[in-house]
């Protein structure tokens, strides 16, 4: 390593990276807060339309996805706990389970969106403009924006966890590489991101599926 690129952390302080991660999570919260603000404004203006439009959403699919994400948060916690105890194989299994649950969430979401598309309900569609009031159009605008943005975060979370999984598997195979402590810290930060995605869904679910 050249002297122009000094090693960043000679002394490891996990609290430093956790503070950084939390600050990043705050920015994610504010990002979604902007969306929730838009939701609140339109919800007050078009409460009747929102009521009717929400009836067309599939409550059972929304409910299934809620349970899937809540459970994925649990498996995430278990993965970190296993890593902290130095049991890399078990941590890899739980991390894999978390990724799989994320995939289930996306598949369910995909079916939900596909069904809406088949009915001609998607942004800027002629059917949406013809058969729906402005309030209902805005409801779907918000629905697609918020669930789409959330799904994007699920994808990013899965990619981050997949990268972590590679590290964990490597640690499981050999005793070399970083110590389990350092890896647990990184897995925990990845987990924080995953939990945040869950927290946002906890709010999205009632706002879209439970207001009919």
């Amino acid at each position: 390593m050249s002297a122009a690129v000094p090693a960043p952390h000679t002394h490891r302080d996990p609290e430093v990276s956790r503070i950084g991660m939390w600050l990043f999570l705050l920015t994610e919260m504010l990002l979604f807060a902007g969306c929730f603000l838009a939701y609140a404004v339109f919800r007050v203006r078009y409460s009747g339309d929102f009521h009717f439009a929400a009836q067309e959403l599939n409550l059972s699919l929304g409910l299934v996805n809620t349970l899937v994400l809540l459970t994925s948060s649990l498996t995430m916690v278990l993965a970190i706990a296993a890593m902290e105890q130095g049991r890399a194989g078990r941590a890899a299994a739980w991390t894999g389970a978390t990724i799989a649950l994320g995939a289930v969430f996306l598949v369910v979401k995909g079916f939900e969106w596909a069904a809406k598309f088949r009915h001609g309900i998607y942004p800027n569609s002629p059917a949406l403009a013809a058969a729906h009031t402005p309030g209902e159009q805005v409801f779907y605008g918000l629905y697609y924006t918020l669930t789409g943005l959330h799904a994007l975060h699920v994808v990013i979370g899965m990619v981050v966890l997949a990268v972590m999984l590679v590290f964990v598997l490597r640690a499981a195979r050999s005793a070399e590489g970083e110590g389990p402590g350092a890896l647990a810290d990184r897995l925990e930060n990845a987990g924080l991101y995953w939990h945040l995605v869950d927290v946002i869904w906890i709010f999205l679910f009632p706002l879209f599926y439970l207001i009919s």
Binding site: L23, L26, T27, E28, M29, L30, L31, F32, A33, G34, C35, A38, F42, P123, N124, Q137, V138, G141, L142, Y144, T145, L149
Partner: peptide, 25 residues
């Protein structure tokens, strides 16, 4: 920078979404 910039980010995302997909917000 932490607490305000994300609001600009989402605003700009909405403008892009509006221009690309016609979301309508």
């Amino acid at each position: 920078q932490i607490l305000a910039t994300p609001i600009l980010a989402i605003t700009l995302v909405l403008v892009m979404a509006e221009r690309l997909f016609g979301i309508g917000l």
